[in-house]
Amino acid sequence: MEQLQKILEEIRPDVDFASEDRLIDNGVLDSIDIIAIVTAVNNAYDVEINVQYLLPEHFNSVEAIYRLICKLQDE
């Protein structure tokens, strides 16, 4: 989780990822941020996030992204 938060903060240093739980719904992250996050996560965790997973519930918070990574690692 901490590693993930660090990655996200590198991409968007202006966002408080610890407290924000509506990153997509509130328009905090845009499409470019999402792709930067997907690319960084794919490289760091050796997973493959594909388009089907591009849903707000998977990217609204650090916890949600972490859950998605765990799910993909289990598959």
Binding site: I35, N43, V51
Partner: peptide
């Protein structure tokens, strides 16, 4: 989304990991 998240484009980005700055590597797919 489909192009930037495609395997080919993600691979290109991964290959550049050691050659370019991390910021640029993340932006390549976009």
């Amino acid at each position: 989304y489909p192009v930037s998240m495609s395997r080919v484009v993600q691979k290109i980005s991964a290959r550049c990991k050691d050659k370019l700055s991390p910021v640029l590597v993340r932006m390549i797919p976009s």
